[in-house]
């Protein structure tokens, strides 16, 4: 009787597109994810500086801020570190097994890659026109005729907003997946500690970023 090598018995057919999009950390973690993740964060920050879109909190995305490019770049790093440190401590508290910091920090960095798409979408000219027009109208006294924006720009703006919201939901899912895979936590314990960690990290990132802005 012929027998298969054990590693061939265990090997799968390779990741599908769906699993790479929604369960990427089954296949990638550690230094590789850390490097790609940091590049993604900085790319999102750079694109954000062009479209004046800033990620001013772990879960926040706002547009229209005029600031130095360094702030756009730093915001992504602060958001990433806030959540990674909190989840690392949560994992140490509740996980029954040992895990590597580089896996959690790396996959949390990579989990932020949908922000690149969101920042890219915000670069679209109709959306930029809409934001510029709204900024001008909101900064001055309300005109007698009310606000006026082109319908096409308004529809496009709505689509960009929807795309950005979907990207943020996808990002949160990736953050959760990273936490469960890297810390080996499942079920209610994983969900509860992740939500708590997300809230704590959101507060921390907001405080740090507001200090950064006022500096």
């Amino acid at each position: 009787m012929t027998t298969l090598a054990p590693e061939k018995r265990l090997a799968t057919r390779g990741p599908t597109v769906v699993s790479l999009l929604f369960r990427p950390f089954d296949y990638i973690a550690g230094t590789q994810s850390l490097l790609i993740g940091i590049v993604s964060i900085l790319t999102a920050g750079f694109l954000g500086s062009l479209s004046r879109t800033h990620f001013d909190g772990v879960l926040d995305m706002h547009t229209g801020l005029a600031a130095r490019r360094a702030l756009f770049l730093a915001a992504g790093i602060i958001n990433w570190l806030s959540l990674s440190v909190v989840l690392f401590l949560m994992g140490k508290l509740v996980s029954r097994t040992a895990f590597r910091a580089v896996d959690l920090f790396g996959t949390q960095a990579l989990a932020r890659w949908p922000t690149v798409i969101a920042a890219l979408a915000a670069l679209a000219p109709p959306f930029q026109r809409l934001v510029a027009r709204l900024n001008v109208q909101l900064s001055s006294a309300v005109p007698a005729g009310g606000f006026s924006v082109a319908t096409g720009d308004l529809v496009f703006g709505g689509l960009v907003g929807l795309a950005a919201a979907l990207c943020l939901v996808w990002m949160v899912w990736l953050m959760y997946h990273s936490y469960t895979v890297c810390c080996n936590i499942r079920g209610g314990k994983a969900l509860g500690t992740f939500i708590a960690g997300l809230i704590i990290a959101e507060v921390i990132s907001k405080v740090v970023l507001s200090r950064f802005l006022s500096a």
């Binding site: 089954d26 296949y27 990638i28 895979v181």
Partner: peptide, 27 residues
Amino acid sequence: QAFVVSFVKASGSLKEMARLLGFSYPT
């Protein structure tokens, strides 16, 4: 059982196992 055999053959290296199986280290 196949995992145990592969693990022993990989000298107990999880990094090598991850490379062989095409999965990440934490998986």
